[in-house]
Design a protein around this nucleic acid. Structure first.
Lengths: 346, 346
DNA sequence: TTGTATGCGTTATCAT
DNA sequence: ATGATAACGCATACAA
């Protein structure tokens, strides 16, 4: 039925153009050592035959391929996707494909890493928000597979991060400066073993802030659970039903803060009057809901992470092994109870 | 510096195990025609050497590789990501890698498609929410690259979709049955040339519903713009500032409905009393906000789409070329103004 | 500037 | 059951 047309190879092109395969190869790889005339003849043949070089053969011959692997946890999280988008865009611009490996457990992480420790699987690997062991890193190094980290760090490996602890402190200080003393925290529980370092660091930042003001930290106001709005709402319900409920809540992410807002509404608790709420990330939803937050450049983190991988491929040393992105407090209507807030939402 | 350890090949394993390369290959591919003893010796050597078969060489030899490409538009949209997650999960379970190609324009679509029309680039391609031309489809067929479509359709190609038009009708009928007559619509503008078919079909469904009730459709209540909450809010602002504003709004997606809710709040318009709002998709946010919506199985669409690709790879005929997923009306507090809504939010 | 020949690491065919 | 060897399609060192 389907005439599985025989693949056109570099050989066919060479024959049609009346040249050797090496010349065709040179044309493909824009090697300057080809006369303009020959180049044109070859290009014509390529066009006529509808020839596509085989990435497989090319990769095999060169000992590496043009695919970059990206390891991501929980791909449905908006923050992860925003980063991923940046990665894909940069890689694509440089002609690299992006293979996405989703990891939900430590076993899955190790299985994928094991597979990717091979220049024939991917020329380089970008890891987003997943902790690596020193052993993994070593093996990548010895195997000559490049590595670039986003939102996670490892000794000697290029990584781009934000200072989550300072961000947490920033958020809490904002709440304290507003007169709030009982500050609840809703963050991620470490169920998977993939950590959730950022959530933990942000909590540390909260404690830093309380310490700075010599305030005691009521540990019973800290609730951890699975990441998600629904879970966060339930955790917040618990907090709001306490005898002495918090007067402010710092959620480890905007997604969780959305759950907090829903919980407050269900309890008919006025925000920010009775409860101030601040999130983290600066997702679009925060801007829409007037949610105060600590904004981090997610997309940019992807861009930077990918660029740092490309630098290594080019043989350039990565100038700054540790690249720290800025954080910015966005004070909106869930903490500041003023006027004309529809305007300041940007 | 870095001792770029020489790659261990099938040859090294053969030598160490004292067998031929063919035998090693058989072991790798779990070919039964190997004696248990030899198998063990080979496996031991593989383990000892830390050998990984080269996917490149394997692919070249077999004339195809184990990477599936996925074409996605606007990867940051939650609906797209949910689908993508399903695809990745299924492919991974079957040992296939997933290369993600993001497309934002027609040129980019064609460039990627052109590249992927090659069994050496990907053994199969899954396309999400992007329209294809008949020409593209033909070329895939003649090149022997398998194709599976999600949220888009093409003659003779396996695809999984929902009935957007019926869904739109469902949403509108719900609003009409609630006594609303002036129904606004906020949907996607076709800026990119990638269509946005679903948004358009949902609008058609709205008109169907109006026709069913012999209601006139006020075209001035239809506003199209870039997909996103912020844009939707602005469009809704226009609608609410009309002399005769709508009494209900159907947003083509939950993301846009969120913008509508924000706009209503900014205008101090009560929902659902003065304005009923319904979205589409059934994202987590809809459940949190109590947003009425038409829920579609996004994750499942990815799962199904990937499965249908795998069926083709297995040489099985896809039994159902067109697979239609169900839609479900979730009536929540943005259309129904009753009691105890915090409970019905599921 | 251009062509020839070898190697990249597998798989598969054919012997044995 | 196992081994030798020819593809697979390209890049590149070397020769011309």
């Amino acid at each position: 039925m389907v005439t599985e047309r025989q693949r056109v190879s570099i050989f066919d092109v060479a024959k049609m153009a009346g040249v050797g395969v090496a010349t065709v190869s040179r044309v493909i790889n824009s090697n300057p050592r080809v006369s303009p005339l020959t180049r044109m003849r070859v290009e014509a043949a390529i066009e006529a035959l509808g020839y596509h070089p085989s990435r497989l053969a090319s990769g095999l011959s060169k000992g590496r391929q043009d695919m970059v692997a990206v390891l991501v946890p929980f791909i449905t999280r908006p923050s992860v996707v925003a980063r991923l988008e940046g990665v894909i865009e940069v890689l694509d611009r440089d002609g690299f494909g992006t293979a996405v490996y989703s990891v939900r457990s430590l076993e899955q992480r190790d299985r994928h890493l094991d597979y990717l420790m091979d220049r024939h699987a991917a020329i380089g690997v970008v890891v987003i928000s997943i902790p690596l062991t020193q052993l993994h890193v070593e093996r990548f190094r010895t195997n000559g597979v490049y590595l670039s980290l986003i939102d996670t760090a490892s000794e000697g490996v290029p990584h781009v991060v934000v200072d989550d602890r300072t961000g947490g402190c920033l958020a809490a200080t904002h709440l304290i400066s507003l007169g709030r003393r009982r500050i609840g925290f809703i963050g991620d529980e470490d169920l998977t073993g993939l950590g959730f370092a950022s959530s933990y660091k942000r909590l540390c930042g909260l404690e830093d802030a309380l310490n700075n003001y010599h305030l005691e930290h009521d540990r019973s106001l800290v609730r951890l659970g699975r990441h998600g709005s629904l879970e966060a709402r339930q955790l917040c319900d618990q907090l709001l039903e306490l005898d002495r409920p918090p007067t402010a809540i710092f959620a480890a992410s905007d997604t969780q803060a959305v759950g907090v807002l829903a919980s407050a509404e269900a309890h008919a608790i006025r925000v920010p009057d009775d409860l101030a709420v601040i999130g983290f990330d600066g997702l679009e939803i925060s801007s829409i809901l007037g949610l105060s937050t600590i904004e981090q450049p997610l997309y940019e983190s992807g861009v930077e992470g990918a660029k740092r991988l490309l630098q290594q491929l080019d043989g350039r040393e990565v100038e700054q092994v540790k690249h720290v992105l800025r954080l910015e407090l966005k004070a909106r209507s869930t903490t500041i109870s003023t006027h004309a807030l529809s305007k300041s939402g940007a």
